[in-house]
Design a protein around this nucleic acid. Structure first.
Length: 497
RNA sequence: GCCGCGUUCGUCUAGGGGUCUAGGACGCUGGCCUUUCACGCCGGUAACACGGGUUCGAAUCCCGUACGCGGUACCA
């Protein structure tokens, strides 16, 4: 019986959670949930990889949690959530890393190095050529550096006793092939000659990503490592570490990257110039529904093999299979995300759309009554891309402040004022004021005046809503209400002449 | 430069030797519906990077080239 499935999302708290990070989290979440449904365990762990104190941003963790919660990705284990593998902050696991570094030092799999940053830079400068612009610290060069492999043992001891700053490096022996089976890409192979003597323990005493990651994944019984493709090149380092520590590595899956709409890296700067949000917080602020973002992200680089495109999170859990993930980077298409947004939005109950639209609507027209707002949402749902688009239909709550210029030019004729006034008079006598009665009133008027229906309905819409577009005219009138309709009709007749 | 990973409509993708005159979705577009705008429905546009090979047969397998992306840090 295989070990119960445990996966982790291990962000570094260096800034706001990225769209790419959310995708990684989502994939891990789906993998865990599906395993859980199949009775194979399925624990989704959050681990905070705060080993880079220089880039540490205190607010980042809260942002990450907010983003996950908003997206509906519930955690099973992590800081503050319990689980038997605490602490979940790497900054609190330093002793564990030091202990294992001690083992690696003893077994000869790693060594101490004293080179300063300047010395490393000097080495690279000295060794760099046109054909080899970035020389590595590895078997070929370490003999020229200042480390426990080149210094006499007593000198090493003397320096350590004197408190000289140092790092611990992984001793990588060339001449071996390291390979593994990626869940998404299949067999991937590397030569150890291409792997550098990676720093494992930094001079500030903190581990690097590679060390902490391997130790924690093992210590936390992680069975599947699912992360972005940018990590693929560091897999051999990790595999060598697992081997040196005598551990069985977890299964690994490297997700294709999310690219900018033009194919490049979806960096913050890059995205900004294209008007694309990059942090989850920005998507939220822009009015994207979490269901839509999740659906869109899931389908970026993955498909169910059927023609279904609209998925809820629960449906994704059932349909997901990591083997069906594509291998190539996927360009981000904001237009398609917006389509997903419209689809998910209109699938919501009217009352829910109303509540999601409420902040934007109230910012525009002040407090609105829930029932009325829901009725407006029900009428307008098919015309919305974002919930906040409902605020554009402010005429349901207040008289139009202006009339669409183009619309007036096109629809407001010489006889419009008279017809609108006449229609107002008829509605004045219409006590019922229903969709049927208001429509009948207009048809009667059209017939009595010998005017085309369009001669009346368009000016009426302009008068009542200030625009030329919108839902059914009579449904709109009923929602606007009798008093407001009459007032607007007469006012438009006066002001537009 | 080197290493790794990729490459089907503009974009997301289906497809894994014959069923591919390459399917779906977004976008764009023609029409229908509707005396508004949308929605919906019907239609159109548009792709197997290139060159060799294997095979009776290749979008699918192999090799090479080109191009793209990632990595090449005491960042993750």
């Amino acid at each position: 019986m295989p070990d119960p499935v445990r996966v982790r999302f291990a962000p570094s708290p260096t800034g706001l959670l990225h769209i790419g990070g959310l995708r990684t989290a989502l994939t891990n979440y789906l993998f865990a949930r599906q395993a859980a449904e199949d009775g194979r365990g399925g624990t989704f762990v959050l681990r905070i990889e705060d080993t880079d104190r220089a880039r540490y941003v205190p607010e980042a963790e809260a942002d990450i949690r907010d983003a996950l919660r908003w997206a509906g990705l519930a955690l099973d284990e992590g800081p503050g959530l319990g689980g038997g593998f605490a602490p979940y902050y790497q900054s609190e696991r330093t002793d564990l890393y030091r202990e294992h570094v001690g083992r690696l030092l003893e077994s000869g799999h790693s060594y101490i190095a004293f080179d300063t940053e300047e010395e490393l830079a000097a080495m690279r400068d000295r060794l760099a050529t046109k054909d080899n612009p970035t020389p590595r610290y590895d078997a070929a060069t370490r003999g020229q550096m200042t480390n426990a492999l080149t210094l006499p043992p007593d000198e090493v001891q003397r320096r350590l006793a004197a408190g000289q700053e140092h790092v611990v490096r992984l001793k990588v022996e060339p001449g071996r092939a390291v390979q593994f089976e990626d869940l998404i890409r299949g067999p991937v192979a590397f030569e150890t000659a291409e792997v550098d003597d990676q720093v494992l323990l930094k001079s500030d005493g903190h581990p690097t990503y590679h060390l902490a990651n391997v130790i924690d994944d093992h210590a936390m019984a992680i069975t599947h490592v699912i992360r972005g493709e940018e990590w693929l090149p560091s897999v051999p380092k990790h595999l060598l570490l697992y081997e040196a520590l005598g551990w069985t590595p977890p299964r690994m899956a490297h997700l294709p990257l999310i690219l900018s709409p033009t194919g490049g890296k979806l960096s913050k700067r890059n995205a900004d110039t294209m008007g694309i949000p990059v942090s989850v917080r920005d998507y939220r602020a822009a009015g994207y529904e979490p269901e839509a973002l999740v659906n869109f992200l899931a389908l970026l680089g993955w498909n169910p093999g059927t023609e279904q495109e609209l998925f809820s999170l629960a449906e994704l859990v059932d349909a997901y299979s990591i083997e069906r993930t594509g291998h190539a980077g996927a360009q981000f298409d904001l237009g398609k995300l917006q389509w997903f947004n419209a689809q998910h939005l209109r699938a919501l109950p009217a009352a829910e759309i109303a509540e999601r639209a409420r902040p934007a609507v109230e910012a525009r027209v002040g407090p609105v009554e829930a029932g009325h707002l829901a009725a407006v949402a029900a009428l307008m749902r098919e015309r919305l891309t974002f919930a906040h688009d409902l605020a554009d239909a402010a005429y349901f709550f207040e008289d139009p402040a202006a009339y669409d210029e183009q619309g007036v030019k096109k629809r407001w004729k010489d006889d419009s004022a008279a017809l609108v006034r006449a229609y107002a008079d008829r509605l004045d006598a219409d006590a019922a004021f229903t969709e049927a009665s208001t429509e009948a009133a207009m048809r009667d008027l059209a017939e009595a005046e010998g005017a085309g229906f369009g001669r009346i309905i368009h000016p009426v819409r302009l008068a009542v809503t200030g625009t030329t577009a919108g839902a059914g005219m009579f449904e709109t009138l009923v929602l606007v209400g009798r008093e407001a309709t009459l007032r607007r009709l007469r006012r438009a007749a006066d002001t537009l002449g």
